[in-house]
Computed example of a mutant assay.
Amino acid sequence: MWAFIHKLGSPKWFYAIAMRLQPWFWTAALVLLAVGSVWGLAFAPADYQQGNSFRIIYVHVPAAILAQSCFIALAAAALVFLVWKIKVADMAAAVIAPFGAAMTFVALFSGSVWGVPTWGTWWIWDARLTSMLIQLFLYLGVIALRGAFLSRDSGARAASVLALVGVVNIPIIKYSVEWWNTLHQPATFTLTERPAMPPEMWLPLLIMVLGFYCFFIALTLMRTCSEILKRESAKRWVRELADEAPGGKR
Rank of each mutant, 00 (worst) to 15 (best):
V95E: 05
K85G: 00
G100F: 11
T104V: 05
A101T: 03
A101F: 06
K85C: 00
V80I: 10
M103W: 05
V88M: 08
V83P: 02
I96W: 09
M91T: 00
K87Q: 04
A93N: 05
T104F: 08
A89Y: 12
V106M: 08
V88C: 12
V95N: 00
A101G: 14
T104H: 06
L82Y: 08
I96H: 07
W84Q: 15
L82C: 07
M91Y: 01
A78N: 07
I86D: 01
L82F: 10
V80W: 15
A77D: 03
V80H: 08
K87A: 09
A92R: 03
F99T: 13
I86C: 03
W84D: 11
A94W: 02
L79D: 01
L79Y: 12
W84E: 05
F99K: 13
A94R: 14
A102Q: 06
A93K: 15
A102G: 13
A92P: 01
A102E: 01
I86R: 14
A102L: 14
D90E: 12
A78G: 10
M103I: 02
P98L: 12
I96G: 04
L79Q: 08
A77L: 03
A94T: 06
I96N: 01
K85F: 01
A101N: 05
M103S: 05
A77T: 03
I96L: 15
L79N: 05
A77P: 02
